[in-house]
Amino acid sequence: MYSPTTEQMQVVHQVAAAYWQQPVDKVLSQLGSIEVLKFTGGKVAGNFPAHKSFPSVFFKVYFYDRGYRFETAGLKAAAEMTPVEGVRVPSVIAFMPEQKAILLEKRAWEDTSSPWKRLWVNKLGIDWFKVGAWLRAFHDTQTTYEKNDYFLRKKFEKFESHLNDLKHLFTPDQVDKMNQIYNSAREYFEKNQCEWVISHGDFGLDNIKKSGSKLEIIDFEDCQPAPREFDVLNCLARLEYTGRFPHRGSTYTEISHQFLEGYNRPLQKSDRYNFLYLLIKLDMLETYFRRSKDGSFGGGRRAIFHLSQTRCLAQIDQFLVQLIKMEKVC
């Protein structure tokens, strides 16, 4: 992990001192105990140690407005939504807009998303009905028919980039079909209205945590209006691997059925559905392809990524074949 810059850590220190209600020069020893857990260039996240009557807390400091605004909007919407028994989000200690910082209660979770745990998803004890019910309640807090041009622009750009980088993995006919799906989606969004909801933006196993009998939804930094299908597809498409060995063949069917039963609203196939599903699968494929070539991972990990790449390619091929069959019937 790269380290934050000196200027970024100065902001983190100012946030910590403000939380402890002390001048920076009075808490120098405590500042040295700050634990940085994640740094992405535009964000520093970690833990502030306890000091006097102030407990240890988890912090996020953003260095761009959009990330702070998105996460703040998501956390506030989650706090105001109809609660779902057994599912929660971490409590907010403070929003600090001047420093673009958020302080959250410090939590400890079971490991549910490491590579080996992912091989045994059905053993994690996640209640997928409740996950679906929570997402539906979250979505329903904010709905609109006003298009989010920023979301569309970023997704179209990502689709173009991934397809350009990965086209050597596909046949010319497959590339042509994917371009047709892309063009149909652009035309659809230009000519039609659809329902947009407040979207978590990165709803999946990585951000569904477990603490005892409770589930916790975390990381709202990509929260923004999106088509209703997006979070649902993002979660389920990334779990399709559970339909293959070493899982039982019925595992994915059971997970998706429980999730959609909890969500309690059927998803209609459409040009936007096809585009979003294919975008998510291309995003997965790009990750698998890149990591399978990354020498910083051990040979065993790279082999798993290569296998995941092969299976993802097969799923995309199956999706395209089924789509062509449906079009011929229609």
Rank of each mutant, 00 (worst) to 15 (best):
I218R: 00
E221H: 09
E221C: 05
C223I: 07
Q224L: 12
Q224V: 08
Q224R: 06
A226K: 06
R228S: 11
R228G: 05
E229S: 11
E229G: 07
F230Q: 00
F230R: 03
D231G: 03
V232W: 10
L233G: 08
L236K: 01
L236S: 10
A237M: 13
R238T: 15
E240L: 09
E240W: 00
Y241G: 11
T242V: 09
T242W: 03
T242Y: 02
T242A: 15
G243I: 14
G243N: 01
G243V: 08
F245L: 07
P246Y: 12
H247P: 00
H247V: 08
H247F: 14
R248Y: 13
G249T: 08
Y252P: 12
S256V: 08
S256R: 12
H257N: 13
Q258S: 07
F259M: 01
L260V: 04
E261Y: 08
E261K: 15
G262V: 12
G262A: 14
Y263E: 02
Y263S: 07
N264L: 00
R265E: 10
R265A: 13
R265S: 11
P266H: 11
L267T: 03
L267W: 01
Q268K: 14
Q268V: 10
K269I: 11
S270T: 07
S270I: 06
D271F: 12
Y273V: 00
Y273P: 00
Y273K: 00
F275D: 09
F275M: 01
L276D: 05
L278Q: 03
I280Q: 05
I280Y: 06
K281V: 04
L282Y: 02
D283G: 13
D283Y: 05
M284H: 01
L285V: 03
L285W: 07
E286S: 14
T287C: 07
Y288I: 00
F289A: 09
R290Q: 13
R290C: 04
